[in-house]
């Protein structure tokens, strides 16, 4: 895998093969693009769940109109709309899902890796995981923000919180369909963050009578 330099990133954007829209001045780094915070925040609702249990997801895919399943899903997070110039307070130890301000489309030969910007990381703000964005992905990118510091952090939509670097994919013969209609993931074409399907095909490892 080779990381794209600024020149290559600009080239691909100009050719409209890679979309990161919109870009404001100073967002382009030497080998990455800064990503801004969008205008929605999802925070795990205190008291909604005693713990995260994969067993609770067992019937989710087959019973899509079940009251308890929907209630559990909807009450898991508190959702906030944060217009520009308004703020959100991220408390120590809490996790928030926020969308990027930018809309991203990756071509079939590039993978994106999202990490926190170091200046924010020094204040305790971390992207909980380095997110991999698959080739062909289309939509906002969800940033999983965690405050590892000891004091709350005030966040405003539009702040540059994360960065994305792009890497060439070494494709095999069977990989030509990447990007033909999104990346095929459950998060493709997302307009705002949402909770994921926790276990997917891991059922064999989940006890049935729990």
């Amino acid at each position: 895998m080779t990381a794209l330099s600024k020149t290559r990133i600009v080239e691909r954007i100009k050719l409209k093969e890679l979309i990161v829209s919109p870009l404001l001045p100073d967002q382009l780094g030497r080998s990455s693009i800064d990503l801004r915070m969008g205008t929605v925040v999802l925070v795990a609702r205190a008291g909604a769940q005693s713990h995260v249990d994969p067993c609770a997801y067992r019937h989710e895919s087959i019973k899509d109109d079940d009251h308890d399943i929907i209630q559990g899903r909807k009450q898991k997070h508190e959702r906030y709309d944060i217009p520009f110039n308004e703020s959100f307070l991220l408390h120590p130890g809490s996790l928030a899902l926020v969308p990027t301000f930018e809309w991203v489309i990756l071509p079939s030969d590039l993978q994106g890796i999202v990490t926190a910007r170091s200046s924010w990381a020094r204040e305790g703000l971390n992207i909980a995981t380095a997110t991999i964005i698959n080739p062909g992905y289309m939509g906002i990118i969800t940033l999983e923000l965690a405050n590892f510091g000891e004091i709350p952090i005030k966040l405003y939509p539009g702040l540059r919180l994360a960065q994305i670097a792009f890497y060439n994919i070494d494709k095999g013969d069977g990989d030509n369909n990447y990007g033909s209609d999104g990346d095929g993931s459950e998060f493709n074409m997302s307009f705002e963050p949402k909770a994921g399907k926790l276990v997917k095909s891991d059922w064999p490892f989940i006890p049935k009578n729990d």
Binding site: K14, S21, P25, Q27, W103, I105, M189
Partner: peptide, 20 residues
């Protein structure tokens, strides 16, 4: 922009810098 499934707005990258 829109028919490429990109939100249609006042941004383009015609030079090496973004134009808003």
């Amino acid at each position: 922009q829109l028919v490429s499934k990109v939100p249609p707005l006042g941004f383009e990258m015609s030079s090496d810098d973004p134009v808003l």
